[in-house]
C-alpha cells in the first residue's frame, strides 16, 4: 500500500511541477517584414497543453508606438505577448485591433487595459453580450492557463479606412463572412510592407471554423482578396503566405463544405448521416479537419435542413 501511495503522490507532484513550469507560451516574435512581427500559434484545437495558443497574433512598430493585432486566448497570453514585444522595441503599445469576437483572438485584452482596444461595433456588441459563454468555453478547454482571465470588451470603435500611426500608414478593412453576416471581421493592412493581417478570413494548412459563418459572404471576400493579392498575408491560423494559395485553400474548403452539406440535405440525408460523409483526399492534410468538419455540420446543417423541409422558407445562409 505504502509504495503505491508514494508512487501516486510522486506522480501528482510531477504532474503539478510540470504543469506549473509549463505555463509559459514561449512567445517568440518573428519579424516577417521590417517592423512587422507575428506570434504564430499551433495547428491544434484548444487543449490544456497549448493553453489556447493556436492563433496568430501580431504587431507593427512605428515611431509613435506599437499597433497590436489581436491579444490571444488568455490574460496570461496577453501579458507574455506584451513582454515579448518589449524585447524587440522600446516603443509602448498605443493601439490594439481585435479582428473578431472569437475567444482565442481577444481574451488577452486585460494586458492592454491602458491602451485603446478597437474593434468593429458588432464585435464590441457581441463580446459585451456573450462574454460569459465565450469565457466558459475557453476555461473548460485550456484549464489553468486561463486563470484570472476576464472578457474585456473593446472600448474603442474601429472605423474602416486609412489611419496614420507615426510614420506608417495602415488601413482598417471591415469585411464579413467568418464571424457574421456583415461588418464582423476586421483586417489590418500595413502599406509600407504590403502585409495584410487577415484574421480568420483566411486559414492556412488548417480547416476553417464556421460557428458564425455566412459562407457566401465569406467566399466573396476571399475572391476580392485573391484579386488584390497582398504581398504578405498573415492568416488567423497557420503559416504566413506570400502567394494566393492560403486564400484559395480556404475558399476551396468552404465551397466544398457548403456544396456537400446542401447536396446531402437535398438528397434527404439526416444531420447525423452528414457526419459520415467522406472528406476528399485534397482536404485530408488540413490540420484538425475531422473535428472541424463535425463542428461545421452542427453550424451549417440545421439552417440548410430548415430550407429543405420548409420548402425554401429562406432563413438559411444563401
Amino acid at each position: 500500500m505504502m509504495p503505491r501511495l508514494n508512487a501516486l503522490l510522486g506522480f501528482y507532484a510531477l504532474l503539478y511541477g510540470s504543469f506549473a513550469a509549463a505555463l509559459d507560451y514561449q512567445l517568440q516574435p518573428r519579424e516577417i517584414a521590417a517592423g512587422v512581427y507575428i506570434f504564430e500559434g499551433r495547428q491544434e484545437h484548444f487543449t490544456r497543453h497549448n493553453g489556447g495558443n493556436i492563433v496568430n497574433t501580431g504587431f507593427v512598430i512605428t515611431d509613435a508606438g506599437v499597433v497590436v493585432i489581436d491579444t490571444g486566448p488568455s490574460r496570461l497570453y496577453g501579458e507574455q505577448m506584451r513582454k515579448a514585444i518589449a524585447t524587440v522595441t522600446d516603443q509602448p503599445p498605443v493601439q490594439v485591433f481585435i479582428t473578431h469576437h472569437h475567444p482565442d483572438h481577444f481574451l488577452g485584452n486585460q494586458a492592454f487595459a491602458d491602451v485603446p482596444i478597437c474593434a468593429l461595433p458588432l464585435t464590441q456588441k457581441i463580446i459585451a453580450r456573450d462574454a460569459d459563454a465565450l469565457l466558459d468555453n475557453m476555461y473548460r478547454a485550456a484549464g489553468a492557463w486561463m486563470e484570472g482571465t476576464e472578457a474585456v470588451a473593446p472600448n474603442c470603435r474601429a472605423e474602416a479606412g486609412k489611419l496614420t500611426v507615426g510614420e506608417r500608414r495602415l488601413s482598417v478593412l471591415a469585411v464579413a463572412g467568418h464571424s457574421g453576416d456583415e461588418a464582423s471581421d476586421l483586417m489590418v493592412y500595413d502599406h509600407r510592407s504590403g502585409t495584410l493581417f487577415a484574421g480568420d478570413i483566411v486559414f492556412h494548412g488548417r480547416a476553417a471554423t464556421t460557428p458564425h459563418a455566412n459562407i457566401q459572404v465569406w467566399l466573396q471576400v476571399l475572391r476580392d482578396l485573391e484579386r488584390q493579392q497582398p504581398q504578405i498575408l498573415v492568416p488567423g491560423h497557420g503559416p504566413t503566405a506570400t502567394d494566393s494559395r492560403a486564400i484559395r485553400e480556404t475558399a476551396a474548403y468552404l465551397e466544398w463544405l457548403d456544396t456537400t452539406l446542401r447536396e446531402a440535405a437535398a438528397a434527404g440525408l439526416d444531420m447525423a448521416e452528414a457526419l459520415e460523409l467522406e472528406i476528399p483526399e485534397r482536404f485530408k492534410s488540413l490540420a484538425v479537419i475531422d473535428e472541424e468538419f463535425e463542428r461545421s455540420v452542427f453550424h451549417l446543417f440545421p439552417a440548410i435542413d430548415q430550407e429543405v423541409l420548409h420548402g425554401g422558407a429562406g432563413n438559411g445562409t444563401r
Binding site: E276, E294, R295, H299
Partner: peptide
C-alpha cells in the same frame, strides 16, 4: 448509433 464525438451544440 451515429452521433458526433463532441456535442458542439
Amino acid at each position: 448509433v451515429i452521433v458526433p464525438r463532441d456535442a458542439e451544440d
